[in-house]
Design a protein around this nucleic acid. Structure first.
Lengths: 148, 148
DNA sequence: ATATAAAAAGACCTAAATATCTTTTAATAT
DNA sequence: ATATTAAAAGATATTTAGGTCTTTTTATAT
C-alpha cells in the first residue's frame, strides 16, 4: 500500500522526532544503522522531506536532521502525499477509471469503507502522535536478528 | 495494494464469468479488448490461474476461457494468493519485522482494523458474488475514452 | 490425416522502484 | 581563512513489475 520509500520516511521521521531536537541533530548514518535502512537511499527520501519543509536539516559539523514544533504537528497524510502521492486514496480497488458512489465497481461499496478509514487515520494522526506512541513503549526499532 | 496483475486477474475472471460458459468460451483477445488490458500480459496471468484451477481453458477452435461451477465459488482471496501472495495481510503497515498485537508498531492498532477488514471481504466474497453485482448493474467495462 | 484456431510457453523488452557510489555544497569549530 | 563534517546533489547500478513478440502445443472441424 505504502511504498518502501514512504515507510522509510515515516520511520525515519519518527526516529528523529523521538531521539533528536534542534540542538541534538541526528545524522543520516545513525538513522540508517538504528532502523536498518539503506543509508543513501534514505538520504534521498529525507532530502525531499526537507525540501517540502516536513523535516529540518543542517549541514556541517554537528549537523543532521531534526524536526521543529511545526513539523511535529504535520499529518502523516502529508508525508504520504509527498513521497507516494495520494492516488491510492482516490482510485478504484479494481483499477476502473470511472468508479464512484454513483457508478460503482463490483467491489466499491466494500472497498471504500476501508479506503476512507485509512484516509481518516492518516489525515488525523501527526508525527508527534507516533512519537508519543513510541514513548509509551510501542515497537519501533527493528530486531536486527529478524529477516525481512 | 493489489498489483496490476491481480486486478487484471479479477476483472478478467469476472468478465469470463459474466459473459462465458462451458459451451461459450471467451478468447483472450475479446477479454483484452473489452477490458482494455494488454493481451499478452493478461494471457500470462490467466495461464497461471488455469494452472491453479481457478479458471478453465481449452485450446483450439472455439477454445477459450470459462469458469465451472466450482470456480465460481472460489474466494477472491484465493486469486490474490496466487497472483500476489498473502503477505500484505500479514505484514506491518510500517514495515517492521516484528509487529503484532503484543508487540505493536505505533500504527498497529489503527492499521490492523483496515487490514483485517479487507481480509474479511476478500476471504468472504466469491467470483460469483462479483458476477452477480455486475448483473445487477455495477460498473465493469471501462469507458475507453477515459485515461488512466 | 490435415488445416486451423486458440491457449501455453518461452524469450525478450521497458519502465519504475529501490539501492549504491561519487562529487559538491554549506555549516561549524579551530 | 582553513579544515572538517555532514547533508545535498548527481550519476549509475540493480531489481521487480509490467508488457511485447515469437514459437510450440493441443483441441476441433473438415
Amino acid at each position: 500500500m505504502l511504498s518502501k520509500s514512504c515507510v522509510y520516511a515515516l520511520r525515519a521521521i519518527v526516529y528523529v522526532g523521538h531521539n533528536g531536537s534542534e540542538n541534538h541533530k541526528i545524522g543520516i548514518k545513525e538513522i540508517g544503522e538504528e532502523l536498518d535502512l539503506p543509508v543513501h537511499f534514505l538520504s534521498k527520501i529525507l532530502q525531499s522531506l526537507v525540501k517540502h519543509n516536513i523535516l529540518q536539516s543542517t549541514k556541517g559539523p554537528h549537523g543532521g536532521f531534526y524536526i521543529n514544533e511545526v513539523s511535529g504537528e504535520i499529518k502523516l497524510l502529508r508525508i504520504i502525499e509527498v513521497v507516494d502521492g495520494l492516488s491510492f486514496f482516490h482510485k478504484c480497488g479494481l483499477g476502473m477509471h470511472e468508479c464512484s458512489d454513483t457508478h460503482p465497481c463490483p467491489l466499491h461499496d466494500d472497498f471504500i469503507v476501508f479506503r476512507e478509514g485509512l484516509y481518516k487515520i492518516f489525515s488525523t494522526k501527526t508525527i508527534n502522535d507516533l512519537v508519543k506512541k513510541v514513548e509509551d513503549g510501542n515497537a519501533f526499532i527493528q530486531n536486527l536478528n529478524t529477516k525481512n
